[in-house]
Design a protein around this nucleic acid. Sequence first.
DNA 1: ATCTCGCGCTAATGCGTATTAGTTGGGGAC
DNA 2: GTCCCCAACTAATACGCATTAGCGCGAGAT
Lengths: 324, 324
Amino acid sequence: MGRRVTQRDIARMTGVSQATVSVVLNDRADSGVRIAPETRQRVLDAIRATGYVADVVGRRLADRSNRILGVFTYEPVFPSTTADFYHPFLVGIEQRAEQVGCDLLLFTSGPHRMRLADGCIVLGRSIGKDELARLVGEHHPFVSVGRRDAADVPYVGADYGAATAELVAKAVARGHRRLAYVGTGGPAESHLDRLRGFADACLAAGVHATHERRDVPLEKLEDVTAIFLEEPADAAELIAALRHHGREVPRDVSVVVLGEPTRAGATPPPLDVTRFRTPRREMGWQAVDHLVDLVGGQPARQTLLACELVAGETLEQARSRRDT
Amino acid sequence: MGRRVTQRDIARMTGVSQATVSVVLNDRADSGVRIAPETRQRVLDAIRATGYVADVVGRRLADRSNRILGVFTYEPVFPSTTADFYHPFLVGIEQRAEQVGCDLLLFTSGPHRMRLADGCIVLGRSIGKDELARLVGEHHPFVSVGRRDAADVPYVGADYGAATAELVAKAVARGHRRLAYVGTGGPAESHLDRLRGFADACLAAGVHATHERRDVPLEKLEDVTAIFLEEPADAAELIAALRHHGREVPRDVSVVVLGEPTRAGATPPPLDVTRFRTPRREMGWQAVDHLVDLVGGQPARQTLLACELVAGETLEQARSRRDT
DNA sequence: ATCTCGCGCTAATGCGTATTAGTTGGGGAC
DNA sequence: GTCCCCAACTAATACGCATTAGCGCGAGAT
């Protein structure tokens, strides 16, 4: 099985120098090097005939772009739930990459080889500070999908804070005065943003707000008329538990889900739940755009995209629990 | 904000040569080069101090492989049904690629740049003969996921023929004597294999077999007691249509599905359908193994993996239609 | 005193590409 | 005939690393 074809091979075949092949390939009219049309054609023919494609590695070493964008995640992509979670991002990334003429390099095990690509997109709900620092330290262009707390990290995120605040406002407008946030509230930025959006909006509206872990005993939520659930996958379970506890959703208590359940979650919620939708495809899209700009020397940006609200049927007029 | 640290930098800092740094780094006891313990220590200290990490690009250039495997599909990966179809293959490919230390290059638009990778994996239900010929003509290692009719194409496929034949045998054992295959029967190899497995098994068993398009009027199937459905996504619709036509499944007619419905199909079948399961993950796995062998100079192979039968509840004892 | 040997290291080379300075040959101007 | 210029290339170099032939040197052998 022969070696792969190199520019030298093409050069020998056509009786020119390797440099000429390189020039023809990159078609640099401005470089001050001129090639006779017929020579150029001979070279192009040979390239066609051999199926030659510039070697990625050589090209990168000589420090040119190879139109490859890297992608890696800080969490496994497969196991069950996350697969469906990541997929829309990847779809967006792939679509946009095709449009800008780039191929995607999926790093199967972390970022050590990130320099093989012109730039990288990193995914992951939560990335440690030290890890982010290492990425920045690489001095290689990258864009995070999802907001990161560290300064100077370019990202395209979803505005979970604003979306959560809007839902709080809707709840307040429907008469709710005692609200609870159920979930970790951290350490991932996406959870921090939700909790902060919740807390700020409640404060601004002057309503009572509490924060509980997801395993909170339902007794502690008896005063609450609207529950804001951080983890969409828990929706079905929460609603069932509430019912089992004698509280019907949305009759006795409203439930707002801060995100969208992925289909992989074995049990889809029985109701069309009030929630919002993370614009995952769009985020992937914009991340690619951003990265391409970055590779092209433009300055880093930090972008938040709005989440679309889904009215659903689990946020209703508040009733005092005495009414039941 | 300086350049990256290189071996030359380390070398200058410690007063040795770049080659020495390389040797210390790779710690090759067998290379015939010996380094005094204290020198080695000085170098290691400098490496520690600077946080040096070998540049992947330089490293790959020196050993002439880039540990990149390409992947491309001949059909779009996203739109609806196919997404869920391809995903398990990709999962298998990615898992195995990580284990063998390769990254994956996702070609966003066809194979023209396939030489960027050490070798490629190609996916697609159906690939034209000419296209296959071009791939072979590239003289660049590749493995197809799915059997291909063209000679000399290395592949890892699923043994649809055997699986279909087994199901025919089960039907015959349950007294079915008039069987129909509903579907295109081509031109994709996977469909050809199913149809051939069906036809051969029916012939061997001496039972009556017909082949109908998927839009066949149900009247034409009135004599048939067992329907073999090529396209799993159509299962729900077929069962509903049969019922609407006065024939209950499996009471009046058995339905065997030649594959597994993907979740994306809006309407999952109402019954646990008798079918088989394509070992998609496993196929991805083995395709990577095969490709790595190929890149390593080993000969091409053609492999078929068995499909797992799922008993289900839609293949029942045959009743003459007069019984109803 | 010379030879040998092995240790510890370096110089040199190659990998495939992009870039730039420089070279060659031929034709036109004077 | 000489000078100059320009089109059309090529030679050389750099990129970061791995590999290998070989060099210098001191110690032990003869």
